[in-house]
Design a protein around this nucleic acid. Structure first.
Lengths: 105, 105
DNA sequence: TGCTTCAATGTCGAATCTGACATACTTTGT
DNA sequence: ACAAAGTATGTCAGATTCGACATTGAAGCA
């Protein structure tokens, strides 16, 4: 959200909060979630780039369509472990990983 | 191990293997373990830098000394999730994380 | 509209991870 | 050598995460 819009909403009496504020997460929790979301995005990118459906990706990952969907949604029930392993299995490299953390916001 | 030494050992009839070869890990598994080990090192660095014992660190992390030891040893029983959360709780930042993946080999 | 493919969401038993405890090993100072 | 502080390792009950399945929603096409 840009500053102008935020200012307008606040002027109109709205409490404008970031997700972090809204859910009152600590800095660390927020950072952790950011990493998870970033990895989830990278995972989906790897899959789409290879023109795979979630079902096909699931096969390569020895998992299921529903879990792939949850991974890409950075669901509460998926671990960074699983995201990372899956990312690597879909051809993700450590260089690409670094990009996830360095560049991406 | 440098090439000369490796060559000498092989000449002497030793099968010289990297951990990856020895345990015959796939590329992905190897990369995953590398990440885990790198994070474990970064975690220990955070702790030592702050002159904390494992017991003190455990307190800050709401965990136990034994688990901290296992984290720093990148034990099979600790997840990247736990490593990452702990790293962040000990003041690790996303920038420092990126460094773990970019620089460190 | 009906049909097909892809993606999202809820649930569950099995597998894995976690904090805690006990215990053993290591290092450092006396 | 002994004690104390720090670290490592094995175990286990409870918690979390896993793959799988069922179901629903959404988009494209005849």
């Amino acid at each position: 959200m840009d500053k102008t819009k935020r200012a307008k909403l606040e002027a109109a009496g709205w409490a404008v909060a970031t997700p972090k504020e809204f859910l009152n997460l600590s800095e660390e929790d927020a950072a952790f979630i950011e990493v998870k979301v970033a990895l989830a995005g990278a995972l989906r990118a790897r899959r789409v780039e290879q023109h795979l459906s979630q079902i096909e990706a699931a096969k390569r990952l020895h998992s299921s369509q529903s879990r792939v969907a949850k991974m890409e949604a950075a669901d509460k029930s998926v671990s960074v472990d699983l995201l990372l392993r899956s990312f690597l299995k879909l051809g993700g490299t450590r260089e690409k990983m670094a990009a996830v953390f360095c560049l991406n916001n």
